[in-house]
Design a protein around this nucleic acid. Sequence first.
DNA 1: GTCAAACTACGACGTTCGTCGTACGATTAG
DNA 2: CTAATCGTACGACGAACGTCGTAGTTTGAC
Lengths: 118, 118
Amino acid sequence: MTTTSARLLEHPPREEIRLEQVLHALADPMRLHVVRHLAALASGEEATCSEIDLAVTKSTSTHHFRVLREAGVIWQIYRGTAKMNRLRREDLDELFPSLLATVLDADAAQRCRLSDGP
Amino acid sequence: MTTTSARLLEHPPREEIRLEQVLHALADPMRLHVVRHLAALASGEEATCSEIDLAVTKSTSTHHFRVLREAGVIWQIYRGTAKMNRLRREDLDELFPSLLATVLDADAAQRCRLSDGP
DNA sequence: GTCAAACTACGACGTTCGTCGTACGATTAG
DNA sequence: CTAATCGTACGACGAACGTCGTAGTTTGAC
């Protein structure tokens, strides 16, 4: 079956997204890794939880995805046995213009700096 | 005496400032309040700890200022019995261009949104 | 039906966080 | 000197965090 399935996940509506929570969600290397991965996808593309390789157990991974979802950073839906993830780019850009891009740039700059340097 | 006094405070050098720590430092309402206050000062101006009114005890206030300093967000020096605070604007802008401004804008937008709304 | 894959729920664990209060140190004003 | 001001150090506390492991549930394939 080409299921357009079922189980629901709670997402904060746009107007309930809070800057502090977003910053907190982004202030963790694991979660920043996820966001970086999702940001690299073409607009509208999705990734499963498991294809984003975090070096932790699945329970921990689930936990981090939930933090991102509850902060309003990502959107998650079930698709068969998999759970698909997308950035909530438009909501974030509307609320906090260029915040996401700036943080991702900062992250890229830092990674570059740390790997180039000694 | 017009003392140019004494006690030293540890600050991370620019190249040791980490994005995750900066985001974590900014992901707290109290600390965001401090940063907002300092950002409103003219460049080079300073504020004491006590003139930035946090609704917490002095120990807690000290704690938050230290988190900001150790993350590399602010610069602190003793001046007599007072401790002066400045944003490390140049260091942050050099490492993470426009991050600070974007976060402050996001904060302003959110405050505006939340006070206008119901 | 059975089985495997993908993710969750729940409880545990040690750590960090935000807060407080009390006691203390440094500096300046008299 | 004394006193007042400003901030610190330390210990406490409950809450939240990041991690794990085990025992599930839901789905799709056979």
